[in-house]
Amino acid sequence: MDKQEVRQVVLDIIADVALDEDVSNLKDDVALRDQLDLDSMDFLDIVMELKKRHQIEVPQEDYPQLASMQSCVEYLRPKFQ
């Protein structure tokens, strides 16, 4: 998967987790928390959805890697190979 595809995967998940919030204008280098109303429950959901849809495991100590879209893509891309 290229970066754009990984980004789309993450975006789809966030769109589902954040229900009816607008995710079309997310800035990649700004923390997701600062742009969307995401709390720790939502981050758990993002991790659970990654596991459910793509069999990707994110251990708890790696949660900080999911802070922004950019860091998500960098961290997750190798896991999609």
Partner: peptide, 8 residues
């Protein structure tokens, strides 16, 4: 809001 979101 939280509970609706969590239960979709």
């Amino acid at each position: 809001g939280k509970l609706l979101k969590q239960l979709r």
